[in-house]
């Protein structure tokens, strides 16, 4: 999983039927120090995260598991909202 921050939302009218009703978020990956790291990605959402929230997301086939038994074509999914980070480099 990776740390990130929700910086926006994607609206798409024409999309795969299985994506109907799914929220699509724009996520900026973060380092543990909460500095931006790399390019933004579009994630589906199963946690109800909103703009500005620090989240963690899951990549790959596993990203479609939160929606089972529905088969949602998602390769990045926000799976949790981060409350606290304890970092000791």
């Amino acid at each position: 999983m990776y740390l990130g921050r929700v910086i926006g939302k994607v609206w798409a009218t024409v999309k795969n039927d299985s994506l109907r009703g799914q929220r699509l978020l724009i996520v900026q990956p973060l380092t543990p120090e909460l500095a931006p790291a790399g390019k933004t990605v579009i994630c589906a959402d199963c946690s109800g995260a909103g703009a500005g929230e620090t989240i963690y997301w899951c990549k790959g086939k596993e990203a479609s598991f939160p929606f089972l038994p529905a088969l949602v074509p998602s390769d990045n999914t926000v799976v949790g909202i981060v409350d606290l980070l304890h970092v000791k480099r």
Binding site: P32, S47, Y56, V79, G80, V82, L85, H86, V87
Partner: peptide
């Protein structure tokens, strides 16, 4: 392991798992 992460609102299957920040 450089840290730990705490999240309350998360997928229910993640409850009870310790989340580590790994470099």
């Amino acid at each position: 392991v450089i840290g730990e992460m705490v999240a309350t609102q998360k997928h229910e299957s993640h409850s009870g798992c310790k989340a580590l920040i790994v470099q």
